[in-house]
């Protein structure tokens, strides 16, 4: 064989051997362990950090919210769907509270062809006059509870009410600034709050033991009795807040409690003409979480003491509406 052929074959052999060795040594370590791929990559991908952490992650610190959310119809909407991923929270700061609720809520609740009929949907243009959704709806418990039907005997209620008169007045108009007027309140609200005291869902040093003594019939009778009384009360003298400033703040309350404090829904109390001292106390109690109501807790969170005083002054000065 001529010399150049031998050399050529040698050259080819060297190239081949070098290539084959290069292939062997450049092959990634875990390649071919399970198949023609890098097995280490499976571990790498499986070890990536999660961004969304699930509601269980939120539960420990936000137990109250979690409990309320998980007991209500939005329990299928996870915390992070509205508040964003919890990775890095709380170390790296707070999670956002959605500001444009109309935009957020309509993602699911805008009436739209293609959405199954089981999905609660609204005609956006005809609903709520452009108010924020959370004006009326608590995002964690969005269903607005219809007022329970109350039927009782006002005469029996009047008898039972004798025990209440020392604080709430014999006509349901409280003689003391710090106790609420009951006269003319919606029966449904009265029944609801009394039941709450009785069950312990709502606590008050004075009310709790008294309410525990009441039977369910008593509660119904009392509610009907007080609801039927005239709410006209003497004008309040010792008002400390600025009613005009209170009117501006009161815009946020109007959706439920009416523009002048006369509620549109019998499940909610009237606050027009209510005792200002009581209003101040109760708002502060909501703000501090002593009195439990998710809706009120949300709306009172941002109120200052001055706001509360002003609100109380404004509502105390409004004319209540007596039952016909």
């Amino acid at each position: 064989m001529p010399k150049h052929i031998v050399r050529l074959l040698g050259l080819i052999a060297v190239v081949l051997v070098v290539s084959l060795l290069a292939i062997q040594f450049m092959t990634a370590e875990s390649f071919y362990r399970f198949g023609p791929y890098r097995a280490d990559n499976v571990t790498e991908i499986a070890s990536l950090e999660t961004v969304y952490q699930t509601p269980a992650y939120c539960k420990d610190c936000h137990s109250e919210r979690h409990a309320q959310w998980s007991a209500n119809s939005h329990k299928s909407v996870t915390c992070e769907t509205c508040h964003g991923p919890a990775k890095g929270h709380p170390e790296k700061g707070k999670l956002p509270i959605p500001s444009d609720t109309a935009k957020l809520c309509t993602l699911c609740h805008e009436a739209m062809p293609g959405r199954p009929s089981t999905q609660p949907q609204i005609q956006v243009a005809q609903h709520a006059n452009g108010q924020s959704c959370n004006t009326c709806h608590n995002p964690h418990a969005p269903k607005i509870v219809a007022a329970a039907k109350v039927s009782g005997d006002p005469a029996a209620g009047k008898q039972r009410a004798a025990a209440c008169a020392s604080c709430h007045g014999d006509k349901g108009i409280s003689p003391n600034d710090t106790w609420p007027n009951l006269a003319g309140q919606p029966a449904a609200y009265l029944a609801k709050i009394l039941s709450a005291y009785k069950s312990g869902a709502q606590k008050d040093v004075a009310m709790t033991p008294l309410a525990k003594e009441l039977s369910n019939a008593d509660i119904q009778n009392l509610a009907v009795y007080y609801a039927g009384l005239s709410c006209d009360a003497p004008a309040q003298s010792k008002v400390s807040g600025d009613a005009a400033a209170g009117k501006a703040v009161a815009k946020n309350c109007a959706a439920c409690h009416g523009e002048t404090g006369v509620s549109s829904n019998p499940a909610w109390p009237h606050i027009a003409g209510q005792q200002p001292g009581y209003l101040v106390n109760v708002l502060k109690a909501f703000r501090a979480g002593l009195r439990k109501d998710p809706m009120m807790a949300g709306v009172t969170r941002g109120l200052s003491d001055t706001d509360i005083a002003n609100l109380a002054a404004y509502y105390a000065g409004q004319k209540c509406r007596s039952p016909k």
């Binding site: 961004v51 969304y52 699930t54 299928s76 996870t78 992070e80 769907t81 699911c108 999905q119």
Partner: peptide, 10 residues
């Protein structure tokens, strides 16, 4: 669960 499954409200 996968993130999309977790997020799906319905």
């Amino acid at each position: 669960q996968p993130a999309c499954v977790e997020a799906c409200p319905v």
